[in-house]
Write a protein that binds this DNA or RNA. Structure first.
Ligand SMILES: NC(=O)c1ccc[n+]([C@@H]2O[C@H](COP(=O)([O-])OP(=O)(O)OC[C@H]3O[C@@H](n4cnc5c(N)ncnc54)[C@H](O)[C@@H]3O)[C@@H](O)[C@H]2O)c1
Ligand SMILES: NC(=O)c1ccc[n+]([C@@H]2O[C@H](COP(=O)([O-])OP(=O)(O)OC[C@H]3O[C@@H](n4cnc5c(N)ncnc54)[C@H](O)[C@@H]3O)[C@@H](O)[C@H]2O)c1
Lengths: 200, 200
DNA sequence: GACTTATCGTGAATTTATTCACAGAAAGAG
DNA sequence: CTCTTTCTGTGAATAAATTCACGATAAGTC
């Protein structure tokens, strides 16, 4: 498996490639490095983990690199995903159309508040959280996005895992636990802000 | 200065301490480790960088550790912050009351859309983005949170830096550049989702 | 007060990540 | 066709981060 830091950077590179796809067909390690705030050797080392052979003095062919990365990172097919908790943040995520183009198919939203579910206006199907297990199984949802208050986060995570979700993106500040075979990534805004001021 | 990973974990620890403050007065490296998904030696090494002396068989005194961490990470005073871009995400952030309790004083919001500014209902003062420079200077705002579309992100970042902001949290997927003395942290949801599926 | 136990602090060992240095490949110029 | 330039790929060197091992300390127990 790819080293963690390498995988993280490769995901970033993949995103950049999607954005610049229309531009001239090649991109160099130096250009990528300057966009990502790292060095060209790091980029080359990262990419060299993919056994891509594309020499010359023009850099990497964007289409080719993109496709190799897509395979290595398993990004070449869309992932069925859901959002749990449709408050301020969750409903913003539900409405974010770019996810589809980025390879994430948001196919369901869940909330515990029935009134909220009735009021919500969106293309995406929304359900009471009591149906989470059933819907996740029926729709073979693989990724769960948690946007509930921190005191409900563990409970939601546990249900998601039981229902068969393979990966979780957690927006709550709660420290949740999942079995080691399930991938968990935390996006804690407050921690991020704290890190920023700690580095000032 | 603290090693990057250490600083990041210490911020997380600080957040945990704030949450469990009411509980019994001590917490051990093992407990922290299990909450954070790391090991007890790592926690102890991290904390040992702070020259905290607190022996015994009860672990760390929560109040004491919290105060030492607050000093080391410069978190012991509130930081004046602003949000630029009051769309779906930005307005959710503007409304997130917990930031205040977490030591971040959101004192202004900005948007380029005048109609939006008039319609927004919030306690926090909102301004057209044309006044950003002036307001940031007048209110001595230190931290900027970017929630504008990716094609405006660099422009906003440049203005924030010119106005004197010291740290930036960027929610757009754009790869923005700032002078090295300004702290930049990116929260790219799509990259995070990609990382999750790459690890599945 | 001696004994037991849970926990910390930290130097040393190990693993992981980054950086360097340079050979090799292709594109373009003359 | 040869020379120059601009890239990549990668083994070796360096740096950073994590893990281990264990002595030291204080709380609780008898
Ligand atoms: N809003 C922000 O800008 C912001 C910033 C930082 C962190 N967060 C975190 O993101 C999470 C969501 O924040 P928010 O502002 O959207 O909160 P919110 O209160 O607006 O929304 C939470 C939603 O979750 C629903 N909910 C509660 N328990 C549930 C359960 N067990 N199952 C399903 N749904 C449930 C509620 O009905 C509500 O609709 C929180 O953990 C918060 O700490 C939000
Ligand atoms: N909404 C989400 O859930 C989500 C998810 C992932 C990433 N993001 C990113 O977060 C950012 C904001 O997303 P959003 O969904 O809130 O977008 P949005 O379109 O709802 O809001 C963007 C806001 O920025 C304002 N704006 C545009 N240019 C500006 C400028 N130069 N100065 C000040 N304000 C300006 C617009 O008027 C609008 O109000 C985007 O970069 C998006 O890619 C959002």
């Amino acid at each position: 498996m790819l080293p963690t830091n390498t995988a993280e950077r490769l995901c970033k590179i993949y995103g950049i490639l999607q954005m610049i796809k229309k531009d001239s067909g090649y991109v160099s390690s130096k250009e990528l490095a300057s966009m990502m705030g790292t060095t060209d050797f790091t980029i080359r080392k990262d990419i060299s983990a993919l056994n891509l052979v594309s020499f010359g003095r023009r850099g990497y062919h964007i289409g080719e690199l993109s496709s190799v990365l897509g395979k290595a990172l398993q990004l070449s097919r869309p992932y069925r995903s859901c959002i749990v908790g449709l408050g301020r943040l969750g409903s913003a995520l539900l409405d974010y159309e770019s996810f589809r183009g980025d390879g994430f198919d948001i196919v369901a939203g869940f909330d515990s508040n029935i009134n909220k579910i009735e009021r919500i206006r969106t293309q995406i199907a929304v359900y009471p959280v009591s149906e989470l297990d059933q819907v996740v199984k029926n729709k073979s949802i693989e990724v769960g996005i948690i946007a509930v208050p921190h005191n409900s986060a563990q409970e939601v995570a546990t249900t998601l895992v039981k229902s068969g979700v393979k990966g979780i993106l957690n927006f709550s500040p709660a420290q949740i636990k999942v079995p080691s075979e399930v991938v968990l990534y935390n996006m804690d805004f407050t921690s991020a802000l704290r890190f920023v001021v700690s580095q000032i």
